[in-house]
Design a protein around this nucleic acid. Structure first.
Lengths: 187, 187
DNA sequence: ACCTGAACACCGTTCAAGT
DNA sequence: ACCTGAACACCGTTCAAGT
């Protein structure tokens, strides 16, 4: 069963695909990350098989929903990697990442997952990690962070921080926790 | 439908209850935190209704499974609250908490949940929080931690740390992350 | 008082049949 | 090429009927 690349789709297929993503996004924004395939199908007015054709797994659907946030964060990371003020750039990037994660729960799923389902997600994740590594190298050289800190550490720690904020309840803790993380990263 | 207190049970009822907890624990230890009520019933050789009679919700079942870990951690916290060396006690307690969380996933669910289902969990949680607060007060007074740190912060942060270790993959990151957290807590 | 298990609603997933 | 939706397996939850 050949799945056409998302770029070249028949007009009606593209419309149906967009509608599925719309209803899925609406559910997520309403606070429901469950995304039952049957419910998506019914809400989008299509058969279940169509949902599966476009998104072979729920993980794939979630990654598609997270693509926008992931792209925005990646762009931010690339900017930060070129910022002359290393310390400020790192802090700012971590703050931006935390904000993205709290705003879009699907991004938390993608960043917290051990492997990706979509090719696009893999590409973006690689680019994001690359930008983080560039910044991290400079930060280590400048003595801003401990030497044993890896890119995967940053990914895990920021996911952990998001989880902490969520466990605490409100988002008012975010800035304080972020401050603690930044201090904890120091050599 | 009056649910008998767990202490006073008919012998056969107690046996059946123990068997359900056994099979549930086996699943968790095998890495499966799903715990479908029907599957538990079948594995324990009882009807589904019996599972529901003893554990009105999956959250209740999980809390019952976590009770041992939660009790052990609470005892540790009470000990730590009396330790004359405040800084060492706090670090040690955080290390112990992280270890418990990583060892028993059900504890992570309970500590990360916003409210409890069982009365016993509420009591134990209250006691745990109390011990944490005692230690925290002394730590603040000694200038060991920042003044704006609350007991709920500690709970959230340790849950976040566990999540970070899990996202990272292995447990080899636990000690390093713990070190970062402790440093981040300083004033 | 306690247990059983059929019953109903729902969700995941597949696949033959349609256009 | 794409879509449909019936079909099957499974899980959550309840409740009338049993002991």
């Amino acid at each position: 069963v050949p799945i056409t690349s998302p770029d070249r789709l028949r007009a009606d297929s593209a419309r149906v695909r967009a509608r599925m993503l719309e209803v899925a996004r609406a559910r997520v924004d309403a606070g429901d990350l469950d995304l039952p395939m049957n419910a998506i199908a019914k809400a989008a007015g299509v058969g279940v098989g169509t949902v599966y054709r476009h998104f072979p797994s729920r993980q794939a659907l979630i990654e598609e929903l997270a693509a926008a946030s992931l792209g925005a964060l990646t762009a931010e990371a690339v900017r930060a990697a070129d910022d002359p003020d290393v310390a400020a750039a790192l802090t700012g990037l971590l703050r931006a990442a935390l904000h993205c994660l709290l705003t879009d729960p699907t991004l938390a799923v993608v960043l917290g997952a051990h492997e990706a389902a979509c090719a696009g997600t893999i590409d973006l994740s690689r680019e994001l990690l690359g930008a983080f590594l560039n910044l991290l190298d400079r930060a280590r050289a400048a003595g801003v962070v401990r030497a044993d800190l890896t890119g995967d550490d940053l990914r895990a720690l920021i996911c952990g921080l998001e989880h902490a904020v969520r466990v605490n309840g409100g988002e008012e803790a975010a800035d304080r926790y972020l401050d603690m993380l930044v201090k904890g990263l120091r050599p």
